[in-house]
Simulated assay, not measured.
Amino acid sequence: MYSVAAIILAAGQSQRMGGANKLLLPVAGQPMIRHVVKCYRAAIDGPIIVVTGHDASNVEAALDHIDAHCTFNPDHKNGQQTAVALGLSHAPDANLLLIGLGDQPLLQSADIRDLIAAHQSADPLKISIPAMDHVRGNPIVVPHSLRAMLTADQERPGCMRFRRDNPARVQRHALPAAGFYTDIDTPNDYAALTSDKEFIT
């Protein structure tokens, strides 16, 4: 069994981006999804599953020569929960499973390691979520013992409903890094990101 594996959700249609696929926009000289997956790859030792959907062939091409496995979600138009369920069905056995988003370019490898450390120092049998000032972030950490429960409800699989229905199985960690709470959904979001010289291509 692996120590830590990851599912990265990259199946969305980028509807608020005005026609562009946000995951392919340049960040630090490379497509956003490549930048994010490399961040995870540097932080964990286990497999990374990237769930694709919209524009899958171009997303997969952006990940060429990276140690990550892409799996296509044919049901991607029906919401993020379908991508989570598919990712869970393809994820390998691991003590901990990260479930993250492909549009968090401020996230750093050190942030992921900090989240894992916070989880391990708390209750390792609960789902761990970064949170600051009542804002919930991503990725989340799912212990192996809870994975099957996330898909027990076949009509509403995934994390969101499970967390609502099982608050005692969830713990939040006050982690301040902006990468946990910043995703890119709109042209304004991307403009704010690239106004930082670090991300100008």
Rank of each mutant, 00 (worst) to 15 (best):
M1C: 14
A5P: 04
A6S: 05
G12P: 01
Q13V: 06
G19W: 07
N21K: 08
P26T: 12
P26I: 10
G29V: 13
R34S: 06
R34G: 00
R34K: 15
H35L: 09
V36K: 00
R41G: 01
D45N: 03
I48D: 00
I48R: 00
I49L: 02
I49S: 04
I49P: 00
V50M: 07
V51I: 12
T52M: 00
G53D: 03
H54Y: 13
V59I: 12
A61F: 07
A61N: 08
D64V: 09
H65S: 09
H65C: 02
N73G: 09
D75A: 05
D75H: 14
N78H: 11
T82L: 09
A85Y: 05
G87A: 01
A94R: 08
L96G: 03
L97H: 07
L98N: 02
I99D: 01
I99C: 08
L101I: 13
G102A: 09
S109N: 05
S109Q: 08
A110G: 14
D114G: 06
L115H: 10
L115M: 15
A117T: 11
H119Q: 11
Q120N: 07
A122K: 13
P130T: 06
P130F: 04
A131D: 13
A131F: 12
L146F: 08
M149P: 00
T151C: 13
G158F: 03
F162P: 01
A174R: 13
L175I: 08
A177M: 11
F180M: 03
D183M: 15
D189K: 06
A191M: 03
T194G: 04
I200M: 14
